[in-house]
Simulated assay, not measured.
Amino acid sequence: MKSPAQPVPPEVVQQVSDYFSVLGEPMRLRILNLLRDGEKCVQDLVEATDTSQANVSKHLKVMLQAGILTRRSKGTLAYYSVEDDLIFELCNLVCDRLATRIEQQAQYFRAFSLASRR
């Protein structure tokens, strides 16, 4: 028999919420996808995202503070990489779930389309 769930402390809920909010920004997901293949310097990310250095740097800073990324300097360049590859597993789970839902919706549309042609 399962024991009743214990209340989660508010500070824990807040930390989980903050982590997910970091991933709720499309530009950050684009940057993470670019870093999937390994470390990149800020300029490479700016060019690949076709946005300003200030915008890329702002998003990198947020992900760095959340512990998602790591940073190293070499001369005047800053290089970023993903600190924990588990972030990609999380993204893959979400993408797989969305793909399943889209496939189910497509089946509903096909069934409706076929039913309306009779």
Rank of each mutant, 00 (worst) to 15 (best):
K61T: 10
V22L: 10
L32G: 04
R71E: 05
P7E: 07
V62M: 06
G67D: 03
V13N: 12
Q6N: 11
D96Y: 10
V22Y: 07
P26N: 06
L35G: 00
L114F: 10
N92S: 11
R72G: 04
Y79N: 00
A115R: 05
E47F: 08
C41H: 13
T70E: 06
Q65M: 09
H59F: 01
L93W: 11
K40S: 01
L77G: 05
Q15P: 04
L35C: 02
G24Y: 05
L29M: 10
M63W: 00
M1D: 11
P10A: 10
M27C: 11
L60I: 06
T49S: 07
D84V: 03
N33V: 04
A78W: 03
S113L: 12
P4H: 05
K40I: 01
Y108A: 09
V62I: 07
Q6R: 12
R71A: 05
A5L: 13
S116C: 10
V13F: 11
Q43A: 03
S3H: 13
A78F: 08
N33F: 08
L69S: 02
S3R: 12
D96W: 08
Q43D: 07
L86S: 09
L29A: 02
G67L: 04
A54M: 03
V8C: 09
R30M: 08
V82Y: 00
E39K: 05
M27I: 15
A48T: 01
R71W: 00
A5Y: 09
A106S: 15
L77T: 05
M1I: 09
